[in-house]
């Protein structure tokens, strides 16, 4: 691993995780979770585990997002306070 790239990516991951659980619009939260998964896949490529990165990009950012949006279309979009 290269520490500088690693640190930048990981701090972005932390920021996105905080953003995903903070926003009130659930659709935005799901999109932020998708971006978080892609960044996590980049972290793993940078740590030389290409297979895990491939799976995470396909499953975490593709299939999970589709499932969450499908569930959201059957329920409500806004989180109540």
């Amino acid at each position: 691993m290269i520490p500088s790239i690693d640190l930048v990516l990981l701090s972005l991951v932390v920021v996105l995780a905080i953003a995903a659980i903070t926003v009130r619009d659930l659709l935005s939260a799901i999109m932020l979770l998708s971006a978080y998964s892609f960044l996590m896949a980049m972290v793993w490529v940078e740590m030389h585990s290409v297979d895990v990165a491939f799976t995470e990009a396909a499953v975490g950012a593709g299939a999970s997002t589709a499932f969450l949006i499908a569930a959201l279309s059957r329920t409500v979009r806004w989180e109540k306070k």
């Binding site: 659980i21 659930l26 979770l33 975490g60 569930a71 329920t75």
Partner: peptide, 14 residues
């Protein structure tokens, strides 16, 4: 919110 809880679960797993 239950979907927020699931997002938290996803983050925990990652």
């Amino acid at each position: 919110n239950l979907i927020k809880k699931l997002i938290g679960l996803s983050i925990f797993q990652t």
